[in-house]
Design a protein around this nucleic acid. Structure first.
Lengths: 122, 122
DNA sequence: CCCGTGGTTCGCAACTTATGAACTAATGAC
DNA sequence: GTCATTAGTTCATAAGTTGCGAACCACGGG
């Protein structure tokens, strides 16, 4: 099954990217991947948004990200290492990833702030 | 049924926006709405991406856009007039709409160019 | 070889989406 | 007022997608 087929850069679509990132877990995972400075194995995401994600589900999430062209996955020993295809996508759709991730950070940043204030008050 | 409930700006989510715009027809419709300089009725979109969209489907598309917070719909006489909630969204998620629509234009621009070249050659 | 770890695939239940048919709402003609 | 027309919503259901446990596959080590 292995050598995954990653889509060629020119067949990556905006709709595909938006769909892949419209799932809260995938968006959280991708934000994390973009933020990381090394490739990440799936295992590192068994916990997402305070929820334990079953591994079959995680595997699907990575498949969707891969097929949307958002990441590149390579087996390294027993693990699957995932890296965002950032430079390629930035070239094809300049500013798209920045804007999406920026919006996501804004949103989750303010949510975190709200619940922090809530705890402090309560 | 009418006075639609549009979500408050602070309850609009990135995921919701991405989901709404991850459908090719909705993305095309929304790009058009942003581009128009007046509110548009649903009827103006019975033809999208070279396909005739059934009106029940169109109605759903507009509902999804509305519930994602992307548009505001108001009945004007016999029509429903739709306007993008651009300023509000730009404030909450600066650059997001620009990036998405920019990417969409890039993509459909180059697709159009390709098929034009194709016709010219053939 | 077998075992453990990390992922994928299968199969099915639960959910979502698309769309024709039936309905509602506003407007205009009479 | 009624009737017709136009614009859009809702309902029902068929088709498609997603989530996830169970079973499976692949690599590395003993």
């Amino acid at each position: 099954m292995r050598p995954f087929n990653h889509p060629a850069i020119e067949s990556i679509t905006v709709e595909g990217i938006l769909h892949a990132l419209s799932d809260p877990e995938r968006l959280a995972i991708y934000a994390c991947l973009l933020n990381a400075d090394a490739a990440q194995a799936c295992t590192n995401f068994q916990q997402v948004n305070d929820r334990t994600v079953p591994k079959s589900t995680l595997s699907q999430h990575f498949r969707v990200l891969r097929e949307a062209g958002l990441i590149r996955s390579e087996r390294q020993g027993v693990e699957m290492l995932n890296t965002p295809r950032r430079a390629e996508i930035d070239k094809r759709f300049p500013g798209l990833l920045d804007a999406v991730i920026g919006a996501y950070c804004r949103q989750s940043g303010s949510a975190a702030a709200r619940s922090k204030r809530g705890r402090a008050r309560g």
